[in-house]
Amino acid sequence: MSDIASRVKKIIVDKLGVDEAEVTNEASFTNDLGADSLDTVELIMEFEKEFNISIPDEQAETITTVGQAVSYLEEHAK
């Protein structure tokens, strides 16, 4: 697992209170990990903080699974 992937997964485990094993690449924040709309917004903010970037709203809306978050951040993280 890349460094970025492990940091992303750590944030998800912490914020959504889920087991690490559940945080697979395919897992959807809302359908599989119990996030509601506010949780999802908070996750994006935490990614922004952790990787010191700004994720535009229209991009944020396309990040709905763990894998999507990891690949977006691998591409954009400074």
Partner: peptide
């Protein structure tokens, strides 16, 4: 000055 309020702030 960039607003970064937590979505749980108000509730």
């Amino acid at each position: 000055g960039t607003p970064r309020f937590n979505p749980f702030f108000i509730p």
